[in-house]
Design a protein around this nucleic acid. Sequence first.
RNA 1: GGGGGUAUAGCUCAGUUGGAUAGAGCAACGGCCUUCUAAGCCGUGGGUCGGGGGUUCGAAUCCUCCUACCCCCGCCA
Length: 590
Amino acid sequence: MANARRCRDNGRLSPRPRPSTDNAVNPRRMKQALSELIQQALNALIDQGVLPADIAPRIQIDRTRDPSHGDLASNIALTLAKPAGKNPRELAGLVCDALPAAPFLKATEVAGPGFINFFLSDSSSQAVVARVLEQGERFGASDEGAGRKVQVEFVSANPTGPLHVGHGRGAAVGDSLCRLLAATGWDVTSEFYYNDAGAQITNLALSVQARCRDLGPEDAGWPEDGYRGDYIKDVAAAYMAGEKIDAEDQHVIGAADADNLESIRAFAVAYLRREQDLDLKAFAVHFDVYFLESSLYDSGAVEETVEALVANGHTYEQDGALWLRTTDFGDDKDRVMRKREGGYTYFLPDVAYHLNKWRRGFERVINEQGADHHSTVTRVRAGLQALHQDIPEGWPDYVLHQMVTVMRDGAEVKLSKRAGSYVTLRDLIDEVGRDATRYFLVARGPSSQLTFDIDLALSQSNDNPVYYIQYAHARVCSVLRKLAEAGGEWRAESGLAKLERLTEDHEAALLKQLDKYPEVVANAARNSEPHTVATYLRELAGDFHTYYNAHKVLVDDTDLRDARLALSAAVRQVIANGLGLLGVSAPESM
RNA sequence: GGGGGUAUAGCUCAGUUGGAUAGAGCAACGGCCUUCUAAGCCGUGGGUCGGGGGUUCGAAUCCUCCUACCCCCGCCA
């Protein structure tokens, strides 16, 4: 700041005893307000002939990273320097001097190569506490979605076995996305799509049937590529015992007839769907709709789709199969739609399914899948374009997550007893708990491979980010309990009336971090990046712990105490809100 | 061979959509700590952002060419 020129001091520390939530300090409008100030300054400079009249500035306001750069900053002088024919710092000074006074600003300065830094007045900075406490669990929410319909499809595991860790990642990411979208005003439908009739299901039925007959993988008569996991035995036993199965979308009674393959198929699907339901429930994940691939055949949607593609001239016959010319839409080769023996490839029902989604009126559809399915993205979009339904080219959106590897004692864990060949989601939940599992699976960007460290997830220390964040929440609860035990009473109004007592640097950092939260939520929802919420919470918890270690909350000075309690309560609220978006609980004690 | 993804501190990862001196947590190193409100606190070192070129006031971020690793490339889903 040595070379920073303090060009204006709008000073006037607000005499108001109570910061209010007026327009000027509403964070959603703060950037807007600053933009308007800058626009006015630019207009003035144009009138003075300092700037050419034909400049069309895109005014950008950013949060600063470094507190010495103020709270917000604009690069307007840097972007306008060339068209204005002036050096950036000089121009920044001119803009700065031309800015109208504003009560919510404490100071404005030119710094660095030509940034204009804005320092908010103390009362403006402190007002976030009032907003948080007044809005409560709604703080951070917005109406950006304006009630528009969005669908999030995720997990979509076929009912051939327990959910594995990869499904868990999909569940954590997809469900958080739903929560984020709901919080930002979208009308959200969560959906689970699965194949209940394909070759894999036949294989499943044959595997269960073999177990019904007491056959194992080593015996003659065991189906080729049959499912070997122990859970197949459970399915067979339940079927032979005539058990009744109630899954979310399947209800079946075991016929106890080892020769009835069709009956076994229906039972196995229902059984494994129920098992997946239980896993999802333990994971606090809910689906509004279960969509069966078979329904697309039953309703004629698949046939209709084929006919439309043929009628639109995007198909041809070759080698006895029917092909879709997906290369017309950016694919690297054409794809078979109908096999030589007459059946359809999986990709055709996928297209029919997405046409169905489109017709249900989802302006936005997000498919959360493992990255090993990325090749379907081009195909589905190509199929939709070939339908000539005016579906936007980039529709639907995809969030593809990379592989998960599970580590314990520094070595990779690959097997589970139950499933045999992979680690199940249930294994993780049972071992490290729902909160840690969810947090770890959602905390990384989807496009990066994820190493799930069981030892870290189990650790009850500050090394474990889940604990660290939850502990910050519990810590505030503890302080309030302590106050009550000492016969004290805390009322939000008392604290809000004394926010001007929050003058420590640590407090300023917390205020700024709290103020950022609504933007974090909005961006996470807009960009389908729930992990940014996890990152944010880690920072907020860190800021709070640091503050807490540096300053006592329950001081004798009751005004100061009340102000700090208000700040702490606001931190607690935001942590609870953020954890809620991740599907992680916010405990009152640990 | 083609497509997608990734590459940032010793490790695990962020990086506000192109901004100021690239951050955090562990680990390492150095101090502090008769305990208070709860699993200690404070500080330091550590980087050719995989490499080259380009775009511009300005690049970890955008374009291009390489390199390495992962995943796909079936008339399976």
